[in-house]
Design a protein around this nucleic acid. Structure first.
Lengths: 208, 208
DNA sequence: ACCGATAACTTAACACCGTTTAGTGAACAG
DNA sequence: CTGTTCACTAAACGGTGTTAAGTTATCGGT
């Protein structure tokens, strides 16, 4: 959000170029010089539109989170909150499997920079959607809920994130690193179903 | 595992130096020159003992996985498999919270390199321990298991990893990035208990 | 005692990275 | 015509992983 020159498309083009490079080479494979080449300007020009690499990545991530939340919301076509919860979970997984570079940047890249309150709020949009589904399911008695909805949403998110994280890192399924994409896809959706099944059964328990 | 000069302690010292730098500065903050400084040699000497940075990191990770598996096994003091499962889960979480830099390197760092079959087998030691606990719990009727034990272990591992991953990245708990360590510790152990509670209730379910 | 080989290590450089300094050239206001 | 501003760039700085080419010391053989 630094003061920018007039060219109104360039900032957006730079972000698009960064996003496509991230998908091709991963977050660690993104260089300012590559971004500049792709938009047809010199590397210094990037710094007229973004304070530094971190800010460029932050804004790229902000846009990716919007796209990600849209994707998850669009998947919710089922009649009951339970249906929509399962659909959301699988949509989340698919998004991660299809955009592994961006997913890693969004959820695993170092520690968070100095992003604004609005950006934080916007990034958590999909989490709020998840919590709403949990609350709707609990109200209708479809979800046996002994936890508050925020904790339940955290539990679901944590497990879903862990599945995506391991699946895209090639560290799962007996032979870590090998990871035929089709095998990973099939196995991870199977695990996703098992996770959702677990959420739908009773959460109440003896405790520790 | 490249052919190495005679100095028998140096390779191990280099790995130790790398490990401590990773804990101080994170994986992205590790420099070959820093490693060399810390062991008191020139940067080029490191390349006499390790082919490149990737191999140094691989061997550092191998050693960390041993330490990690020891830690998880030592925590299993309870009488029943269920007790030991919960203890293992919390031990896993604590290890991650206390060694965030190494944890990220072990589980989230780019794609896996060309590591040997033995190394892969060794790295999965803690996963096998988890699966054994699940099998013991199921045999004794303590764990209602409608899944095969490998899938059940994957489900548990995935959720536990997701919790650690989000907790150490500062992306959880309403205000991502802020993350007072004590708050993170308390909240993440609460989520861990909720996760374990879920595993102990019935896994059987309608499916999707 | 001397020679050559080898082993352990270092100096100096390479290409590349994020970033900054000091511009260039064109458009425009007076 | 002049001075200013604006969008952009060339060249450099310090830092990175890595390598080529030494340097120095030790040791076996004669």
């Amino acid at each position: 959000m630094s003061a920018r020159p007039a060219n109104p498309h360039l900032a957006s083009d730079i972000i698009s170029a960064a996003a496509s490079i991230i998908e091709e080479n991963g977050p660690e494979g993104l260089t300012m010089r590559d971004v500049a080449d792709r938009v047809g300007y010199s590397p210094t020009t990037i710094y007229l539109y973004f304070k530094n690499k971190e800010q460029l990545l932050d804004e790229t991530v902000n846009r990716a989170f919007e796209w990600f939340a849209d994707w998850c919301e669009k998947a919710q076509t089922g009649p009951t909150p339970i249906d929509r919860l399962r659909q959301t979970a699988h949509a989340y997984l698919d998004w991660g499997l299809q955009n592994p570079g961006m997913y890693r940047l969004m959820f695993e890249w170092g520690y968070l920079g100095d992003i604004s309150e609005e950006a934080i709020f916007a990034r958590r949009r999909s989490w709020r959607g998840c919590r709403q589904l949990v609350e709707m399911g609990a109200e209708k008695g479809l979800l046996p809920l002994s936890l508050d909805s925020g904790l339940a949403a955290d539990v679901m998110w944590v497990a879903t994130h862990g599945l995506v994280s391991l699946a895209i890192s090639g560290r799962m399924f007996g032979n870590p690193g090998v990871a035929d994409p089709e095998v990973v896809h099939k196995r991870s959706h199977m695990i996703m179903d098992a996770l959702v099944d677990g959420w739908l059964s009773d959460w109440a328990s003896p405790g520790s």
